[in-house]
Design a binder for these strands. Structure first.
Lengths: 346, 346
DNA sequence: TTGTATGCGTTATCAC
DNA sequence: GTGATAACGCATACAA
């Protein structure tokens, strides 16, 4: 293995220094610019770097002046959900603009996995964390917060710790949507929702209940299905609800996946001559506008959510030490959905 | 600030050692297990760790025994495309299973940005890279490959370098789909495709042309639109094509976004009484089965692609030094799409 | 303009 | 069972 082709290991500044017949410091100066270096020496070093294929080790650099790694972690509950992948895209884009690299982790709504992931990210000395919490208690992060790791929560507020958080107006969005259904004359409005113990699930259910109360409608237990965890389960729940003795004339679903499940059930029912049910679902989604079935969604800007949460984090990284901030992203009713597939593929 | 609450900086082993009245080495032993430590000393150290909120610095650890960082990078062209986010999910899941953390980066199909991202990831000493190449030449990675950084390419083969690659059967999938249209009696089959200079674009166009040739159909230039970069542009192209003097009776679109655009155009046309066009698109997508319009897709398993590419990388990380491998993921025709929203939200 | 000593947080090695 | 020392790759402080 000739020196000219580079060795078999990743070359260090020492290797370059040896190759260029200078000291390590001179190499460091050339690599980092700034300090004056003799043009000829400089060229010798550059040649050596080229020959050896040297790349500065940013980890060692960071270790030296014990500062930022330029790394942030994004911990989400379900990256496969289009909503969270949109969030991730927005976070990645904003982070990169700020010169930060992004490590993503998926918890699959498992608190233990979340804890493990977060610990790993802290061990990797990320500058900051964006967490969509699955766990019930984040008190274990309190110490890290005071010691220089910034944490911002997303979608759901943390418990056991005071930190920045960006949420969606879950309660208001759900309440307004259901109020709209009631205003249209619906007296029996069904609810299909994900786990009520999850913040978004609880708030959206509360919004539904509040709207019923406001409209003077009774909250019938047999019209409420909670703890539904996916499209297929939602399809079964909707079929069950709509095929029952006193079927609701309208349905509210608490997230995008459940909306799709309900739509499938409605399509099946319509095929056998079932009545048209009116549907409103939380979360907009791609192609919602392309479906023939009439329904509408409670939409909000997932990209804005991602940008906001990343901006808050960046703010902390920049030294902001004020009290925790809570930002709420507003919702708006969107008939038939409006989220076109706007992305380009080049 | 009492010692019991921890200081304002991230505590190191030294801090713990001082607190527990032992040497750093003892702390290290306690932290890493393995070496025998007196139970009482051990407890003192654990208490100190608890009090101070110490977390081992995995960067420094990595620096010490100059080995794997346990980090891999995923560089994709368009994370906003559902296809790539599915890929990312599969990669993240597989990586985590292997104990690797994942840094994701989006190039937006920009070669310069890709280069910059890759350089940054190499500086961060990732153990390996998964790249969906946007750049035309990856010769600059040749040196890194021999020096211990594993690289696997995804979706498109690299140029200027020999490395593992996992692709989709773009040519075969497109050819079979268009052959199917021809077999159904279509003589004028339109093509709406993304950039032909991109590997997938070129291969799918070639597949289209091959199918036409096989069927003895002329390749009419006015039926081919390439370089289309998104759903909106595809919608215009399709409307243009279908509204023209000699409109095709069938359409082939080269990816999911373009398929959606074409579907929009077809819906508009149908609303004004236009003829029914037959459509086949490359890439399956969510809700394809829910759309009323008749069409079909060329489907393939994006998760399998992600798992495969990550497995190949893991193989290299484990020391595999054989010649570069090329894996091709097969496609299958899927009437109306079959990709249900199967994910769960808990 | 260039080099030496030192330290970042951790661990391998060897001594006690 | 425990500790001192050196080293990982790099950069700051200071000296030459």
């Amino acid at each position: 293995m000739s020196p000219a082709t580079g060795g078999r290991h990743r070359p260090t500044m020492r290797d370059v220094a040896r190759e260029a017949q200078v000291s390590v410091m001179t190499v460091s100066r050339v690599v980092n610019g700034g300090d004056p270096v003799n043009p000829q020496t400089r060229q010798r070093v550059l040649d050596a770097i080229e020959r050896l294929g040297f790349r500065p080790n940013s980890l060692a650099r960071g270790l030296r002046h014990n500062r930022s790694t330029g790394l942030i972690g994004l911990v989400v509950t379900n990256l496969a959900n289009p909503f969270y992948s949109r969030l991730a895209v927005a976070v990645e884009e904003t982070a990169r603009r700020l010169g930060l690299a992004l490590i993503v982790g998926n918890t699959d709504e498992d608190a233990a996995r979340e804890r493990q992931l977060v610990e790993d990210l802290l061990a990797r000395r990320v500058d900051g964390l964006i967490i969509v919490p699955a766990g019930e208690d984040h008190g274990y992060l309190a110490g890290d917060l005071t010691r220089g790791t910034s944490v911002v929560f997303c979608s759901r507020p943390p418990r056991g710790i005071d930190a920045d958080v960006v949420t969606v107006d879950d309660f208001g969005g759900a309440r307004d949507a259901v109020a709209g259904l009631a205003a249209k004359g619906h007296h029996r409005i069904g609810y299909i929702g994900h786990l009520a113990r999850i913040h978004t699930g609880g708030e959206r259910l509360n919004g539904y209940l509040a709207a019923l109360a406001d409209a003077g409608l009774p909250a019938a237990e047999e019209l409420v299905r909670v703890g539904i965890t996916g499209a297929e389960e939602a399809e079964r729940a909707a079929a069950d609800l709509l095929g029952g003795p006193a079927a609701p004339t309208a349905l509210f679903t608490s997230n995008n996946l459940l909306t799709v499940g309900a739509l499938r059930a409605m399509r099946t029912l319509r095929a056998v001559g079932g009545a048209g049910t009116e549907l409103v679902g939380f979360d907009d989604f791609d192609l919602a506008d392309m479906l023939e079935q009439p329904f509408s969604v409670v939409a909000y800007d997932a990209e804005l959510l991602g940008r906001t949460v990343t901006d808050l984090l960046a703010d902390r990284l920049a030294g902001e030490t004020g009290p925790p901030r809570a930002v709420v992203i507003g919702t708006r009713p969107a008939p038939r959905g409006t989220l076109a597939a706007r992305q380009a593929t080049r």
